[in-house]
Each structure stands twice: as C-alpha cells, then as structure tokens.
Nucleic acid binder design. Sequence first.
DNA 1: CCCTGATTCGC
DNA 2: GCGAATCAGG
Length: 195
Amino acid sequence: MSWTDERVETLKKMWGEGQSASQIAKELGGVTRNAVIGKVHRLGLSNRAGSGGATAKAAPKEKPAAAAKPAPKPTPKAKPAPVPAVKEEPELDENGIPISAARRAIIPAGQPLPPQPSANEISPEALAKVNEVEKTAKKISLMELTEKTCKWPVGDPATEDFWFCGLAVKQGKPYCEAHVGVAFQPMSSRRDRRR
DNA sequence: CCCTGATTCGC
DNA sequence: GCGAATCAGG
C-alpha cells in the first residue's frame, strides 16, 4: 500500500481529530500504526493541540555505537510561571491548513456526564477501587479536562467540593481505569486482536 | 500487559 | 519516502 492522496487525507483528518495512530492504521488498512506515525512525522504534523503537557516526550538514546551525533536536544519548555494559565495559540499549519485545534472542548455540555455511583449494583470491587482512586485523584477543574484526563465528576457541582478525577484515562475512554469500571458495566468484553 | 506516540535507520 | 524495530511513557 502506498500513501495515495486520499489515504493521506484520511490520515490528516483522523489525526487531527485526535484519533490514535493504531485506529488510523486500522481504518486505512494495509499499514501499521508505525507506518502511520512515521507518515505523520514526515508530514510535519506531530503535535496535535499545543496544550501544555501531552505525550510528547523524546529521549534520544544512543544505542548503536556507530557514529557520534552532536545533535543537540532542545527541550522547549515554556512553563516558567507557576500560574497554570492556558495559552490559546491560533497556530496555523505551514501548509496553509488551519488546524482546528479546538479539540480540547471535548466537554459535551449536555448529558454524557456519568451518574454518581450511589446505591447501584456495581461490583463492590469496582466501587472500592473508585473509592481508593478518589483519594489519589488529581482533583482537577472543568477547564483542566483534556482528552487524556478522567472526566469523572466527584462531589456536588453546586458546591465547592466538586472536582474531576483527572487521572490518566484508560484508552479511548473518557475515564480512568477505575472509573471506567463503574461507568459502564454492560459491555460485552470485546476481545479483538488486530495485528 | 495493555496502550500511546517518538525516533532511528536500513531499505 | 517508507516503516519495522526500538524506545519511552501512561
């Protein structure tokens, strides 16, 4: 399979939508996630939303002792201020493609908020886990929610004693592992390996 | 162990 | 340019 115009287009679209490389690869077919990532890099669209602190860390390790590479590792860090102010950069693509970096507004202001586990019939095990998690939760605010933070609300939104879990989400889920467990019970354990 | 993206390097 | 292998992190 080669990177036809169409396939590249799909790649760009999905990547822009925040789809994972593996998902894109699966969609396109005939390529692996590595191929997708490689292409993404070659296209020059590495980072998605320039929000501070996604998964964009690189630690160049010199494993092969072939040639010495004086390649400097500029680690761009723009966070000297203790004030966690979110910067909104327009950020246009050099190719003229306006990156609609408004992916961060994932909060579907509506209903998708999960019900609080009150006296439901959830695995006592899962409940215990959630209880545990809520003690170690990051307790982030609404504005701090990202695609990668658990969006499980805790407490009463009408009071100050309200926050979101904020831990790292499981996979494509909106919640962390623990909360995923209590969020949706009924789910045929999908087991599909595609590789 | 599952996943994610990042980088390297032979092709 | 391509992507498997590898690496690094959650």
